[in-house]
Design a protein around this nucleic acid. Sequence first.
DNA 1: TCTATTCCGTTGGAATCACAACATAACCAA
DNA 2: TTGGTTATGTTGTGATTCCAACGGAATAGA
Lengths: 226, 226
Amino acid sequence: MTRNLTTLPLLCKLFKSVPPEEVEPLIERLGASIKTLRKGEVLFRTGFKADHFAIVLSGVLAVSRYDVNGHRNIVEQVDPMGTAAVALSIAGVERLRVSVEAKEKTEVLLFDVARVLCPGRVPDPVHLRFLRNLTINLAEKAVMLGRKISILSHRTIERRLLTYLHGQSIRNNSLKFEIPFDRQALADFLCVERSALSAEIGKLCKRGVISARKNHFELLKEVDED
Amino acid sequence: MTRNLTTLPLLCKLFKSVPPEEVEPLIERLGASIKTLRKGEVLFRTGFKADHFAIVLSGVLAVSRYDVNGHRNIVEQVDPMGTAAVALSIAGVERLRVSVEAKEKTEVLLFDVARVLCPGRVPDPVHLRFLRNLTINLAEKAVMLGRKISILSHRTIERRLLTYLHGQSIRNNSLKFEIPFDRQALADFLCVERSALSAEIGKLCKRGVISARKNHFELLKEVDED
DNA sequence: TCTATTCCGTTGGAATCACAACATAACCAA
DNA sequence: TTGGTTATGTTGTGATTCCAACGGAATAGA
């Protein structure tokens, strides 16, 4: 193994609290392997099963979905230290509806799900720590996805936006907060048009419901319409 | 403990493959407790933290979300052997945005997350089996939520419907299949109006894209528009 | 300063949807 | 059969959104 992996505990949530000197032995025991993908190379293919999951060490993975017409649509981008196909591989999905491929030359660390979950054996404490991190990671992902659904289940831009802002307000424990998106990214997240979003933000400001300057938002009054 | 819990392995996915005679000892060791909720009683309250999760033994739980206006909106209903707040408690969400309450008199089995995850100790094999089930359960949930998002991220009823049907077709490995929804439930799932959905189904039939009779659907041609 | 670029807001027309109201069909029970 | 209930399809209108095109503001680089 040519790469220094002892920094993983600091950078990758799955290795949190794993002693640096235990990283390589753990990886060894799990039979994980480093694979280098050429640009455009497919790691997990639509229609097949993923019995591994990946941690990106360098480069970028793109998670794409093929719609009814067979057209590709990038769902998610996985940067270094991010993970790919964790839920899909653990859930044992038989026929993937997404494909995972390298946007550029990419190094990944591949884990065999069967060995990670190690059915039938009692894992050592370090392995156990890894498993716990995995579980917590999945729980956090489920919570995030649930929140996104609660936004997308609203039909108007106004409601989606207010639901999102309300959530951010709770998260920051304040009526004033900044969001991690510019307008285009926010529109993408809410699954609406950027221009229509801008227009809606303008209306809400004019009505005195919110105040918005660039990334900075403020909730001005409890919405009482409806 | 007055209740017979030895049937749990057959009925509840979290206890799958746990030997029936090991159920009660495991529950004992985890310090899980049975709680009976009166109708309307709140189990997990919006704004607070859930450091337990629940398995419903009898009765029904309602997971509700309070929108920007404070109005309640039922997100999910948990029937017997279903679980509530698994992801939320494991993710350690500090301020819940949903509340969980009993729709009728309800018995739940409550698990303390800290003791289930048992940080710092190596669990016994039965406990380990339980943890694995928990992890797989979370992974399956994340996959389901991801699929729902892929549907809701489409903006038209037609696209949402076709995406859903396409997924069902893959799941059943056939162009002919039945769906587990009536029209109203399908509309709720797709987050659209029932009547508009009916109209759209009609159009797709007329255009020869699909065939639909009650629950039975068939994909007739690869959609090539766009 | 000048220019190019990116980000953001605005506008108008076309497409789509929500909503309500009604029509039809299927089903069940009295 | 009759009546009631539920599931589903149809229609029309108003509201909302998409989409494309444009203009202005802010920013960065030469």
